[in-house]
Design a binder for these strands. Structure first.
Lengths: 350, 350
DNA sequence: CTGAAAGCGCTTACAG
DNA sequence: CTGAAAGCGCTTACAG
């Protein structure tokens, strides 16, 4: 199959040298006489030779390339992780190749069931003998990771905390996310906040909730926890219907309240419904905070919503740093928690 | 380096069969006696064997994996292309691996010069003997593509049109982008529009401009073309300063005008400045249209801006279709132009 | 149905 | 400084 492409032997013949010399021209040019090197390069150019990485990978039983598994690129967090990882890896001349675990052909067929390709992709990078893999995960990944442990060099898990894990982990400070939201509205003098969220089915939810509770207790803010029917915009719209009477009653009492949404999506879904109730003004009567700002930070954003800026770039950079640290003989696995920042916008400070 | 991992020979020994039989267990299980197959699989499980893809790639001088090169994932268009490509490839069991050409370690160092990794990544996929490469490009890519032509099977170029190219091309209809923007504001009865854009330094700019001109002539809309100092938000803010007097004069004449921005970024940058001039209301006095809606379409978006929804998903799906079509013996290269749609929002229809 | 053997394109000591 | 040779982990006719 595709035998037309020249191989190292063809180059050697064209240059009148041995294949070992061609290999050295590519990998250890300083060992060759300048004249020989020149001859080899001419032959390469003339034939349009491009070496196959398979030969090298076979011999080393390892490649230099780093793998990055992301659940979903719609989520800006992972885009930023990818950016941080790629730029950081580039500093030491390494390449990062990415693949998505969160969506695949199964979706196309039925539009419902979401088959998770994470383990499949771990297997893929193991077969490729990747020099390291960064796994961004929304779920317990241990089974898939353990299976490939001996076939890739370091593995760094991003965004999921497995207690006692045998690998490095990079997390954002999700408790701080909840704390920052509550602290922000407390700073504005608001004494009553709703925490609007799904149940604690994934780690970050429980952590953000815990952080919000902690800050609420500390700041003397009353925190009312409300369960939303999902995380998407329609759930945000739906929940306003349930809250509207309470919000009006608060306004009647002259009390400003805050709605703290677990996701920006929820907040975005809630706001049109809220604005349609034209007696309630954002941010004067109701302040709105999202918790995973998936818009770029930008001071003068027309669409500005108060949200927490998630440290994706730093997380990606950190992950690569840990991958490289793992080469050190005295390496001990680290668990790095990256801080977050609130980004105040028009939905709280007007 | 890393000799600990078991190879096919170790599995053969453990199962008491030959390496050829192990290979068949993996690739042609139907050829084996069920009992033998079972024995091999036990050995594989016991040893934690994962085959190296390098051996296979070496022999075939080709891999099944498809490569996808994107300039930038901050741009939602390419995220959607990736999604479309991955889902479509998944239907036939193929994998898509991605890499970014638009940013790299160079950026880190100086924050200014943007070294383009496109040719480098084309070389990478050539060395990997990719089964096909989808190149999303913002610039003339011919040199890089020609260099690897013999080392990857099909190549599909997305988002850049090279006349007479020796490969398939997938484009969006950029003239239609301009036309749709003008048609939309003409439908609203607006007779004067500003086309705010950088110079025609890349293909899509000129095409959108041409489309806008064509529609303006057809619809009897006066089109004033204004040069912006860039494509980012600050350029949008700056340009309003220059236009503000003209906009006020139009309002004084009772004339509603439209601002058609080449990018959503420009529009987003412009709007706060415009709103600060509190005598001018959006959309009543000034209607705003962006041209590369990088937000997901969503009927009730609080942040809703009128923009053109770019068909990234369809482009990615189309690219994979073309990659696969190339396997047909009678294949002729295609140039596919995918249509776009306007997505009306609060900045024009309120 | 299974095994022995050749060979894919490369790298790496080693000898000279 | 260069070449000859072994070998990486796999697949693939082929023989039996």
């Amino acid at each position: 199959m595709r035998r037309g492409t020249p191989n190292i032997g063809a180059v050697a013949r064209a240059a009148g040298v041995s294949v070992g010399t061609v290999s050295n021209a590519l990998n250890n040019p300083e060992r060759l006489a300048p004249e020989t090197l020149e001859r080899v390069h001419s032959a390469i150019a003339e034939l349009g030779y491009i070496r196959s990485s398979a030969g090298r990978t076979l011999i080393q039983n390892a490649s230099e390339d780093l793998g990055l598994i992301v659940p979903d690129l719609i989520n800006r967090l992972f885009v930023e992780v990818a950016r941080g990882a790629q730029l950081t890896a580039g500093v030491t001349g390494k390449r990062v190749v990415m693949a998505n675990s969160g969506y695949n052909a199964h979706d196309l067929a039925n539009g419902i069931e979401q088959h998770d390709a994470q383990d499949d992709l771990l297997g893929y990078f193991a077969e490729a003998r990747a020099g390291g893999v960064i796994v961004c995960s929304m779920r317990e990944p241990s089974a898939g990771i353990d299976r490939i442990r001996n076939h890739v060099r370091p593995i760094v898990l991003v965004n999921y905390d497995v207690p006692g894990a045998d690998w490095c982990t990079v997390l954002m400070d999700n408790e701080q996310v909840g704390r920052a939201a509550v602290d922000h509205i407390a700073d504005l003098g608001i004494r009553h906040a709703y925490f609007l969220s799904i149940d604690d089915i994934v780690q970050p939810v429980g952590e953000r909730r815990r952080g919000a509770r902690e800050a609420a207790a500390r700041r003397g803010v009353r925190l009312t926890e409300v369960l939303t029917p999902g995380l998407m915009q329609n759930a945000g719209a739906a929940i306003i219907g349930e809250l509207i009477d309470a919000l009006r009653a608060a306004k009647a009492r002259g009390e400003r309240v805050a709605l703290l949404f677990l996701s920006d999506e929820l907040a975005i879904g809630a706001m049109p419904t809220l604005r349609a109730a034209s007696d309630l003004r954002i941010p004067d009567d109701v302040a709105i905070v999202g918790m995973d700002g998936d818009h770029r930070p930008s001071g003068n954003d027309w669409m500005s919503m108060t949200s927490i800026t998630l440290p994706g770039y730093a997380m990606g950079a950190e992950a690569v740093r840990l991958l490289e640290a793992e080469a050190q003989p005295d390496h001990a696995h680290e668990r790095v928690v990256v801080p977050v920042e609130i980004s105040p916008g028009a939905t709280t400070i007007g």
